[in-house]
Simulated assay, not measured.
Amino acid sequence: MPIITDLLYLPPIEYFVAIQGHQEIWLDSKERYQKQTFRNRTQIRLANKVENISLPVIGGNKKVNFAEVEIDYNQKWKNIHLRGIQSAYGKAPFYEFYFPYIEDVFAKNLTKLSELNLELLTVCLKLLKLEVSVKYMEIIGEQPNVTDMRGIIHPKEGFEARNILMPTQYSQLFGSEFVPNLSIIDLLFCAGPESKEILTKSQKND
């Protein structure tokens, strides 16, 4: 059964919990860009705080097709993101195994935000060993037997407001209190091959 989702930047764990059990991810090719969403931001855990890192874009507004939104390379965001990820997870157990895959995507200097997000999503699905295909759909109306997750996972409200994630704790690098629903890279770098099982355990049952 397919699931329709937004195309997010290094999505939160909740996203991957939501797509488990689906064979296809459908993306809306005519989607409009929306500010202040996970399309251009993600959350990582540093030594003293949870940090929101965001991608600067050129001309992003609701009238623009998301596929046309460009990344602003005039700002030094890439160095900030790579240094931030290294600072947060450089000592994590599986960082050295998984980080090169993420770094390789950044090295391509992709100009479109949607292209970057899609490549990073593809890499994360591979590292999680989730057998899910991703495709763009030209026309998405109401579809029988299709789960529509568009607009559901949003940074303006916590995951507790949605019926998707029941966090399963894993060993994080910093702090004594577990922080749920960070970027999927937090789980990958900290839990490695156990990540898929943790996602399965984190599915909220009605």
Rank of each mutant, 00 (worst) to 15 (best):
I25Q: 05
N163M: 06
C124S: 13
K112L: 08
N61M: 01
E51H: 10
I152W: 06
L118F: 14
A92C: 13
I85F: 07
E194T: 03
R32S: 08
E14F: 02
F159N: 04
Y98M: 00
K49S: 14
L113P: 04
G21L: 02
T147L: 08
I184F: 06
K129F: 13
V134S: 00
F178W: 03
F94M: 09
N145H: 15
P167C: 03
M166D: 15
Q36A: 08
I153W: 02
A18Y: 06
W26Q: 02
S114T: 09
H154S: 09
P11R: 03
N109W: 01
N74S: 14
D72Q: 06
N205I: 14
V134W: 01
E194P: 04
F97E: 05
R150I: 09
I25N: 12
G59Y: 10
Q75A: 10
I140K: 07
N61R: 14
F106S: 06
L120C: 06
K78Y: 15
P167L: 01
D206W: 12
I185T: 02
F66I: 09
A47W: 03
I80T: 03
Q172D: 04
S176T: 09
Y73D: 10
K108R: 07
A88D: 00
Y73L: 12
P11C: 11
T122K: 14
N163T: 09
K129Q: 13
R39H: 15
T37K: 08
L10C: 06
L113C: 09
F16Y: 15
I102L: 05
L110Y: 03
V64S: 12
T111E: 11
R162M: 00
P144C: 01
R83S: 14
Y136L: 05
V69K: 09
G158M: 03
I85M: 07
Q36N: 11
Y33L: 11
W77A: 06
L187Y: 09
A161T: 07
V132Y: 09
P193S: 00
K201Y: 04
W77I: 03
P56I: 06
K156S: 13
A161I: 06
P155I: 10
T42H: 07
P167N: 02
A67K: 15
L127H: 08
S176Q: 15
L125R: 07
E194I: 12
W77P: 04
Q143H: 15
